Simulated scan of single mutants.
Amino acid sequence: MAKTIPASGAGAVRIILKNKQDFHFDLRSKEQEGNRMSYIFDVFYENVSGTLNMAVEEGVVKIAALNLGLGKVITLSNDDNLRKLANYVLGQLG
């Protein structure tokens, strides 16, 4: 059984990365504007669900935001592990 994410959201991305088999996502939308590809995913992990939004330019995640409805939105500026999670999700797309 995977570790549950605390209600505060502390360490959420790190917990998900350690338990990737319990992390599920569905692509809701994908749009291209110039050389930027934007994605929105519905995400699910154990006791939480939410969205992962990201913008990718030339294969590099430039913007990412994970909202699990836990009071704060996790972004690249407040959690370095989010880039690893975003790259994992992109890698699973194909």
Results as ranks from 00 to 15, higher is better:
18 K>H: 06
29 S>L: 06
19 N>D: 13
84 K>I: 08
43 V>Q: 05
7 A>C: 12
91 G>N: 12
45 Y>S: 02
70 L>G: 07
10 A>H: 07
76 L>Q: 08
15 I>A: 12
83 R>N: 14
89 V>P: 11
5 I>C: 00
38 S>G: 12
50 G>I: 07
90 L>I: 00
82 L>A: 06
6 P>T: 09
12 A>N: 14
31 E>D: 14
22 D>F: 14
63 I>L: 01
15 I>Q: 10
70 L>W: 05
36 R>Q: 13
53 N>W: 05
77 S>P: 02
79 D>F: 01
80 D>N: 13
84 K>R: 14
83 R>F: 12
21 Q>E: 11
30 K>R: 03
5 I>G: 00
43 V>D: 03
88 Y>A: 01
88 Y>E: 00
68 L>W: 09
23 F>K: 02
30 K>M: 03
33 E>G: 06
26 D>F: 00
84 K>N: 13
40 I>M: 01
82 L>V: 05
21 Q>A: 04
62 K>A: 05
40 I>L: 03
16 I>Q: 04
66 L>E: 14
93 L>T: 15
14 R>V: 14
65 A>C: 06
94 G>N: 11
57 E>V: 01
39 Y>I: 07
21 Q>K: 04
54 M>W: 07
46 E>T: 13
81 N>C: 15
54 M>N: 03
70 L>P: 11
21 Q>W: 02
46 E>N: 14
79 D>Y: 02
73 V>G: 06
55 A>E: 12
74 I>W: 01
12 A>K: 07
17 L>P: 05
40 I>Q: 01
56 V>Q: 10
70 L>E: 04
72 K>R: 15
33 E>I: 04
21 Q>T: 02
1 M>V: 11
18 K>G: 10
79 D>P: 02
35 N>P: 05
49 S>F: 04
50 G>Y: 05
13 V>Y: 07
77 S>W: 06
79 D>M: 03
59 G>A: 00
24 H>R: 11
41 F>N: 04
31 E>N: 13
20 K>L: 15
50 G>P: 12
42 D>N: 06
30 K>C: 01
50 G>L: 09
65 A>H: 09
1 M>C: 09
21 Q>N: 05
34 G>E: 11
81 N>D: 15
74 I>P: 01
89 V>Q: 11
43 V>R: 06
4 T>I: 13
62 K>G: 01
79 D>G: 03
29 S>N: 09
56 V>A: 08
60 V>G: 03
